[in-house]
Design a protein around this nucleic acid. Structure first.
Length: 937
RNA sequence: GGGUGUUUAGCUCAGUUGGGAGAGCGACGGCCUUACAAGCCGUAGGUCGCAGGUUCGACCCCUGCAACACCCACCA
């Protein structure tokens, strides 16, 4: 064991300080290579969703990793040969934007730098800051195999990407074509459908009058046809006006022409079912080059496509001269004004519309006609759908399967080319004639296509979208296309844990690609968790300034530092004052340090199925306290087991057997919870057991056993052994979720049981079968707890000080009660501070007393000047009321013939028993009330 | 427009085949009881979103509605 980790038992601090242990422990684990797969067990692999190499750790990562690490540590302890595959993503657009912004701040423009130099800069940046997130991940305690760290731009990984591209191309599943795609005019690249976010925004609906040609008129006799649009500037590219084929208002005009104002172009009036007769005027302007619908209409009617935009969405040379060079916003104003001047502007209405924006840039996306590379998805989707349909892959919670199906069954071809520099450059080469050759290199292309060696080839300048390479994560990280041992051992991986936001981006594509290239599913289970939101339920974002850094919960942060952190480097600096105000309100004292274990435990406790998590500060504080509870319980156990002799004769008391039985149940509950991905149940089972069974009852009950001179040495040994065994077991049960504190405490506890090992993380996970169930012991201790609770209730309500001991009388009940009272006398006396206790014969007269009922057993505390008779009556009155209400409800039920006739016998029988018990209880309470009333007179 | 989820104590959330509504935090009262005041003991608090239905019996199953959240979608 390394120095510094063996704190002497009786020098343990009175409270737990996470900082004293966490980082040293992690370093030690990593140095010893404990995170790497080991042993000969069955392979068990979890893939990390690779974070952006440029990123920093956020709450989503912390949540996600807590769950993964809990599973991994659990399976590792269960003896599986576990691999948690780590790595980072090159995050094409995000990284390029970030580096570009930094260069801009230094006055360097990307274009001036040139492609190669720019990419050099990105690599430099990656060398310099790419390790940040991995260091932060270490702070979470994540047991990732760092020796297998992968980056999606590594040479080996790039090789896999090229291989996949080439194969898909050769299979005809990748093609290049001119299509209308989503174009981000700010980033000047195409993006995929998924990268477009549609937002409801307020806009206008403009009505334009297009003059009819050839003396046509509408049925109203007008010489113009009125169309409505939300995008006035696109009229410069109109090539038709469409009406519905069944629309009688315009039937006579179909085949005719209008003059496109401002442009002075003769365009046809066509009939197409796409038009909704009910909407607006029933006439639609058709701009095939700038609208997805119009494009389809245009294709059906063979309309020309007139592109009026440059790549940054300014008006190009295809538009009339006076608009050329204007931005789309300027052009919109000009077009409206010019039409107005010509008296061709009709109504302008407010209109809510969906505006497509790029998820990275926030810029309004243009449908734009360009040459791009696409993947044909339908053939890839088919087996991927089947894999989920037939249960090979399961989603948890299951409803996400429907989300998956609905998207997969209507999947569109995937735009994979990006007009960016940072990323995998597309392995397509062109000769002077523009012929395309796909191969991993120019040489390979010449060889593959039998081109003369001196054929000049130039590589396609586009790169692949990031998700194209992330889709290969399950097999590319394991060495594909080589047939490696790792592929054999770890693919399919077991559980993928991810947020619901990347099911389409990542999960679906991994399933398709992995099936296609390896004939194996990538994972058996997809556990989908919610997103982490702030205390108000808002999405955390840098822009809103409500983001929280997991490390701030671990280490703590002062208010001023937090404000500075949230308000610096804002994209919208004007929001700073508002953010500062909100921060000062929400965190008046900053954030205290809670430690990693508390943070992890909180995430587990909040990980309920199918909902987002609102991160609640009160919860983490409570779980920090839980850590402290474990710490102090350990301290207690160590203090009281110093003279424990492992081999000495030990005799187990009822309390010990009760505790061992409870431990049996705990392990069962914990196993069940983890097997069903109910991390919240796991957390609460552990919490409940540790605090409310072990600490509140067992430790307290053990004190009389340990400290009473009349208890035999063998019994004391039994209790000491149980204290140690249960605690040692508990630490192993909890370890997957709270690795640091359990490791630390375990090294104190385990040696007492003659167990020494360098780490808890490679110990066996406890098995329920190691602990005997004992129903008699459980019944007896539950009985004892009821009596103690009854007495505590009397004490509490009567305000009897804890240090004031009370006499106790017992009456009624049966032989079982008498036996139990004898067996538990010392514990009863100590826990309830009972000075003396005695039994009254059933018919004996009792002195005036306060009363608690445990079944038929009367638990009595003589008033004796300690308890006010009136107060005691009030207390009993509440109990009586409750009993009467319960009885009333049950009698009503039993009075219902239908219930008695139709409900299962055992249910009816149970109700009858309850009624009998309540009747007896009410009788006793009423009797007691009467006596107290007499006393008060 | 289609779909999903949520609605339970003041707050954050459990509630596993329908059979006596729970936890944590907070509140209130009492305790520095030799592991822990980051603690201990006790108490109060809910017509389980609304309206119907099925059933002997509904927080739970069915229908409808409402509010909130999210996803998908081409209505100019």
């Amino acid at each position: 064991m390394p120095a510094g980790r063996s704190t002497r038992p009786n020098t343990m601090d009175s409270s737990f300080d996470p900082h004293a242990i966490e980082q040293d422990l992690y370093r030690h684990w990593e140095q010893e290579n404990y995170f790497a797969p080991s042993g000969n067990g069955e392979g068990y692999c979890v893939l990390i969703p690779p974070p952006n190499v440029t990123g920093t750790l956020h709450m989503g990562h912390a949540f996600n990793q807590t769950l993964m690490d809990t599973l991994i540590r659990y399976q590792r302890m269960k003896g599986k040969r576990t691999l948690w595959q780590t790595g980072t993503d090159h995050a094409g657009i995000a990284t390029q934007m970030l580096v570009e912004r930094q260069l801009n701040e230094q006055g360097i423009q990307r274009d001036a730098l040139g492609r190669e130099a720019f990419i050099e800069k990105v690599w430099e940046w990656r060398e310099q800051s790419g390790g940040t997130i991995n260091q932060q991940i270490r702070r979470m305690g994540s047991s990732l195999d760092w020796s297998r760290d992968r980056f999606t731009m590594d040479d080996a990984y790039a090789e896999a990407v090229l291989e996949v591209f080439e194969r898909l191309y050769d299979e005809g599943l990748i093609y290049k074509g001119q299509r209308l795609v989503n174009w981000d005019p700010q980033l000047r690249t195409a993006i995929s459908d998924l990268e477009v976010e549609n937002h409801d925004e307020q806009g206008h609906l403009w009505h334009f009058h297009y003059p009819l040609l050839d003396d046509l008129t509408t049925k109203d006799g007008a010489a113009v046809l009125t169309v409505a649009t939300t995008r006035p500037e696109t009229m410069l590219g109109d090539t038709a006006v469409a009406v519905h084929p069944d629309d009688e208002r315009y039937a006579h005009l179909v085949g005719g022409f209008v003059n496109l104002p401002l442009v002075d172009r003769r365009i046809p009036i066509i009939a197409d079912e796409y038009v909704d007769m009910e909407f607006g005027t029933g006439c639609v302007k058709i701009t095939p080059a700038h609208d997805f619908n119009d494009n389809e209409v245009g294709a059906r009617h063979d309309l020309p496509l007139i592109n009026i935009f440059t790549t940054d969405a300014a008006i190009n040379d295809n538009a009339p001269a006076q608009y050329q060079g204007m931005s789309r916003e300027e052009a919109r104003k000009a077009v409206v004004a010019d039409l107005d001047a010509l008296d061709l502007l009709g109504e302008v209405k407010d209109h809510a519309l969906m505006v497509p924006r790029g998820d990275r840039s926030g810029a309004i996306i243009e449908p734009f006609l360009t040459d791009q590379w696409f993947v044909e998805m339908t053939p890839l989707a088919k087996p991927a759908i089947e894999a989920v349909e037939n249960g090979d892959i399961k989603f948890v919670p299951k409803q996400y399967e429907n989300v998956y199906f609905s998207w997969m069954r209507d999947i569109q071809d995937w735009t994979i080319s990006r007009q960016q520099w940072w990323g995998h450059q597309i392995p397509a080469y062109y000769d002077a004639q523009g012929n395309v050759y796909v191969a991993k290199s120019a040489d390979a292309a010449r060889a593959k296509y039998n081109l003369p060696a001196d054929t000049a080839l130039t590589q396609d300048t586009d790169v692949l979208e990031t998700w194209f390479s992330s889709a290969l994560w399950p097999f590319a990280t394991l060495g594909w296309p080589d047939e490696t041992v790792e592929l054999d051992q770890f693919l399919p991986t077991d559980t993928l844990i991810t947020g619901h936001d990347i099911i389409f981006f990542w999960v679906a594509r991994m399933i398709m690609m992995t099936l296609h290239f390896t004939d194996r599913i990538p994972f058996h289970t997809v556990y989908v968790h919610g997103l982490v939101r702030d205390g108000e339920g808002n999405k955390m974002s840098k822009t809103k300034g409500n983001g929280l850094d997991p490390l701030d919960f671990i280490d703590g942060i002062s208010l001023d530092e937090l404000v500075t952190k949230r308000t610096s480097n804002l994209t919208q600096p004007q929001l700073a004052p508002k953010i500062e105000k909100a921060t000062r309100k929400d965190f008046p004292d900053g954030i205290p340090s809670y430690g990693t274990d508390a943070l992890r435990f909180t995430f587990c406790a909040l990980a309920t199925t199918g909902r987002d998590v609102k991160f609640d500060l009160n919860r983490i504080e409570g779980y920090r306290n839980f850590c402290n509870k474990l710490w102090n319980a350990t301290k207690f156990v160590l203090m009281n087991t110093e003279d424990f002799v492992p081999d000495a004769t030990a005799e187990l008391s009822t309390v010990d057997r009760w505790m061992l039985s409870k431990t049996h149940q705990l392990i069962k509950d914990a196993e069940y919870a983890l097997a069903t991905y109910r991390f919240d149940i796991f957390a609460s089972a552990v919490y409940e057991f540790a605090w409310h069974e072990y600490c509140d009852w067992y430790v307290e009950l053990s004190k009389p056993l340990l400290w009473d001179d009349t208890i035999s040495a063998a019994e004391k040994q039994g209790t000491r052994r149980t204290l140690l065994e249960v605690l040692e077991t508990l630490l192993r049960v909890v370890h997957p979720v709270m690795p640091f504190i359990t490791e630390t405490l375990w090294h104190q506890v385990a040696p007492r049981l003659q167990v020494t090992h360098d780490t808890i993380m490679l110990q066996e996970y406890p098995q329920a079968g190691e602990f005997t169930e004992d129903n008699d012991a459980v019944a007896q201790i539950e009985w004892l707890k009821q009596i103690i609770s009854g007495l505590r209730n009397i004490r509490g309500e009567a305000n009897i000080k804890p240090n004031q001991s009370i006499p106790l009388l017992l009456q009624g009940g049966g032989d079982g009660d008498r036996n139990r009272s004898v067996a538990t006398a010392s514990m009863l006396q100590r826990l309830a501070n009972v000075s003396e206790f005695s039994w009254l014969e059933d018919d004996a007269e009792s002195p005036p007393h306060a009363l608690a009922l445990v079944g038929d057993l009367k638990v009595m505390v003589p008033l004796a000047g300690l308890i006010d008779a009136t107060a005691e009556r009030n207390r009993l009155d509440k109990e009586l009321n409750k009993a009467q209400q319960d009885l009333q409800r049950i009698e009503k039920k039993l009075g219902n013939q239908n219930f008695v006739a139709k409900a299962p016998v055992e249910v009816v029988e149970k109700e009858r028993d309850k009624a009998t018990d309540l009747q007896s209880r009410i009788a006793t309470l009423t009797d007691q009330m009467t006596k107290l009333a007499e006393l008060a007179e």
